[in-house]
Design a binder for these strands. Structure first.
Length: 517
RNA sequence: GCCCCCAUCGUCUAGGGGACCAGGACGCAGCCCUUUCAAGGCUAAAACGGGGGUUCGAAUCCCCCUGGGGGCACCA
């Protein structure tokens, strides 16, 4: 059963007399807390999006918190890419490292002392302890446990130390970490919004390290402290965190804090549905014109609107038919209650469909504005006035913005390149095709290029007079005028191109065909 | 190996015990429209992983199996 509403209603049935309704939440405080260690991908984008939607819908706040406590893995470019990606998607945060806010700093590397302070509180409460075991001993221990087919966890050696003894060794400068003192008996019951209650035996939860020997806190401590201090009400995060969720609950309870609502979002699987995306597969994807990295998508000619619509629907649905959503629609309609806990395979073909859909929803001016950089990048000399005329005839044919280069490039090129043999019409001889071009040129020279209907009628009657099908004639002219066997509608293209250039091109075609006659 | 989560067409999904010989979308196939390609319209093929329960009745609730996924760091 995938619907969460059902779980909730059965749970709340007793106190609710069964009158279950989807109600709007009071204002939430939510956060997106990425670690700038690599490129920003679709999964992060979706997590950020859902958080953002919830904040906007309820009139709450959306915060950006940078989780950079691990200096070894920090990549400066990653943070810039992250920010660019979120902006491109249209997500703005209310509080964050760049915009500030009342609960800062929003960069964990600026909060080192805070975490240390809270770690010490836990030690005082006997909920954490100093551990002096070396990484070597730990690695060795793990190896032994693996071999013995035992669960791999800390054996609790330093847990037995008295606080006095530990403090003495700390004072002597002995390297140490701080570990959480997980209860070893009983169970803990935690609640994930999508999955309901999960009960775990405490003995399966490790004494995780909270503070490393270099004094930096690990995620488990830092994130819990920050969420509390920043007054976070709902934590929407990747389900990769589900396995450490019991630990997190223990930490929160050890402080005596109230737990935010936890929502663990399903992960994205690679298109085959077998496992997460790997480096190698990402490279292959790019070859095919796709990418899981948001920044790449922009360059490949995808619309942020389409990305948002697409990823919103991977793991969430509104009803049994609506599929087109703008950001505004999503803000209004998004609900935690229609989230799907099972993993979803990424489907780029569907993404293409959404991109086309959103392209078709753009105004002509907007689409022209967005297509232009792609044409320029291809080295085309774009005239704005002409582009505005072209856009309506290519709009419904574009899958990505980049497609415009192939589709409309002929409007902006001086010379067309194509195989002369293409000028031979379907089921026609070279001579017949040559004749058709000559006749066309003559007709076009005297034609009026202001009216589509008239021009089309004249060309059709020319075809008829020559005993050709309209399609045969149009096919030849299409090559002559656009250089392609597939193009936007021919007559409209000719009108936009203008009489002079059309005649030039037909003339050039006659010459070329003459060469292979 | 250990722990946890998940399970409806190929894929994304609808499904709140009877309204379901399971609905929508992408893709695929066919047809219509048509100067090519699209877009649009119509039609088709396509799923409740298996086994046990509970119930008058199960895609829906429970258990087991199987399959899939995630985690098991002085990463996040």
């Amino acid at each position: 059963m995938r619907s969460v509403r059902k779980r909730l209603s059965s749970r709340q049935h007793n106190c609710n007399s069964g009158a279950e309704m989807t109600e709007k939440l009071p204002p939430v405080r939510v956060r997106f807390a990425p670690s700038p260690t690599g490129r920003t991908h679709l999964g992060s984008g979706r997590t950020a999006l859902y958080n953002y939607l919830l904040a906007r819908q309820t009139g709450g706040q959306f915060l950006l918190r940078i989780e950079d406590t691990d200096q070894k893995r920090y990549v400066p470019e990653a943070e810039q890419e992250l920010i660019d990606s979120l902006h491109w998607l249209g997500l703005q945060w209310d509080e964050g490292p760049d915009v500030g806010g009342p609960y800062g700093p929003y960069r964990q590397s600026d909060r080192k002392e805070i975490y240390l302070e809270y770690a010490k509180q836990l030690i005082e409460k006997d909920k954490a302890y100093y551990c002096f075991c070396t990484p070597e001993r730990l690695a060795h221990l793990r190896e032994q446990q693996m071999q013995a087919k035992q669960p791999t966890m800390y054996d609790g050696l330093c847990r037995k130390l008295t606080l006095e003894e530990a403090l003495r060794r700390v004072k002597q400068g002995e390297p140490h970490v701080i570990r959480f003192k997980t209860p070893k008996e009983g169970t803990i019951t935690i609640r994930d919004y999508l999955r309901g209650e999960i009960t775990v035996e405490n003995r399966t939860i490790d004494d995780y390290i909270l503070v490393k020997s270099d004094g930096w806190a690990l995620y488990h401590l830092a994130a819990m402290v920050d969420d509390q201090l920043m007054r976070i009400t709902h934590v929407l995060r990747s389900s990769e965190w589900l396995s450490t969720f019991p630990l997190h609950a223990h930490i929160i309870r050890a402080f005596g804090w109230q737990e935010p609502v936890f929502v663990h979002l399903s992960v994205f699987l690679k298109p085959s549905g077998k496992g997460k995306m790997s480096k190698r597969e990402s490279a292959q994807l790019l070859q095919d014109g796709y990418s899981i990295f948001i920044k790449d998508l922009e360059q490949l000619g995808y619309l942020p609107e389409a990305v948002v619509n697409w990823i919103a629907l991977m793991g969430w649905s509104y009803d049994d038919k609506t599929e087109f959503f703008t950001m505004q629609d999503l803000i209004e309609k998004f609900s935690l209650d229609h989230l799907n806990p099972s993993p979803a395979a990424i489907n780029f073909t569907k993404f293409d469909h959404f991109n086309g859909l959103h392209i078709r929803h753009l105004t002509v001016e907007d689409l022209a504005r967005r297509v232009k950089p792609f044409l320029l990048k291809a080295g085309l000399k774009v005239e704005d006035q002409k582009l505005l005329q072209i856009v309506p005839i290519i709009q419904e044919r574009l899958v990505t913005l980049d497609d415009a280069v192939e589709m409309a490039g002929f409007f902006f090129r001086d010379k067309l390149e194509y195989e002369p043999a293409l000028l031979v019409g379907k089921n026609l001889s070279t001579r017949e095709s040559f004749k058709a071009l000559q006749e066309s040129h003559q007709l076009l020279s005297g034609a009026d290029f202001d009216d589509k209907e008239t021009l089309e009628i004249s060309l059709r009657s020319l075809a008829e007079r020559m005993g050709l099908k309209a399609g045969q004639l149009f096919g030849i002219l299409r090559i002559a005028v656009t250089g392609r066997s597939v193009s936007p509608p021919l007559i409209e293209s000719m009108l936009i191109l203008g009489k002079e250039r059309v005649l030039e091109r037909v003339q050039a075609a006659i010459i070329r065909l003459n060469e292979i006659l």
